[in-house]
Amino acid sequence: MYPDKFQYFTPGDIASLEELLDKYRDDSKILAGGQSIIPLLKMRFTSIPNIIDISNIKGLNFIELNDDLEIGPMARTAEVAASNIVAMNCPLLFDAAGKVADPQVRNMGTVGGDICEADPRNDMPAVMLALNADFEITNSSGKRTVNSTEFFKDAYTTALDSNDILTKISIKNIGYHGKYFKFTTMASDFALFAVAINMKLNSDETVKDIGIGLTNVSSTAVKANEVEAYLKGKKIDEKISEEAFSKLLNMIELDDDYNGTKEEKQKILKKIFVNGLKEVYGDSK
């Protein structure tokens, strides 16, 4: 299966990119690693007249620790999954990046592409929500920052306008403990659902701050605000975790399908969630 025809551009800097985006707007799409968009083009689920490859733009591929952990949109998923800086400062992202798809896809695919594609089954949106990440968005009129909680609108829909480009991912909540609990079916590497947890404790072992994001439990990644609020200031034990899960249930939509009934899926999700909280809490102590 092959893509439909398109024009292909490789701008060398942001200004030329902006020019192209302003010109083609909805008739264009940015190509980062291409690991989501190329399969869609091949299946002809979509046809895009103008593909703009941003891999030649300098300064989009970086992983840096300044005040925040800063990641460029063209940082390959495999680079993030192998980065010492990420491992030391953001174990959740480090763990999750290593669980995206498979080695070949991670070598080509980017964290930025995973975020901007906003496929409800993609892993990075939930991780970004758990991390409370900020996204620097650039277009021809300037830069703005959008928090991840404002970014994911619906399946494949984000706060990005057709002439916007994600230029930086900033993670403030570093030095936390965290992990990505990804549950896949036997034969697939897509999450049936997944729970991202980022946690920091006070010296008395109560939760100082926690971020929880979920993959594929709704039309878009879900940030478990109420659950986070509930857990703050508490010591996590089984009873608290179960109560937290019951709050979580109000925020998600699971359907019956061949992978199980809604109830069966809830049971699995509960296990993952409760065990996950326990594990990250244990790591944080």
């Binding site: 292909y8 490789t10 190509l31 291409g34 690991q35 190329i38 399969p39 091949k42 593909i51 490859d53 891999s55 495999a78 080695p103 070949q104 896809v105 070598n107 080509m108």
Partner: peptide, 14 residues
């Protein structure tokens, strides 16, 4: 680095 050549445009390998 290993990649899946069915999911890479030849242009990306330029």
């Amino acid at each position: 680095k290993s990649v899946k050549s069915c999911t890479v445009l030849a242009m990306q390998a330029n």
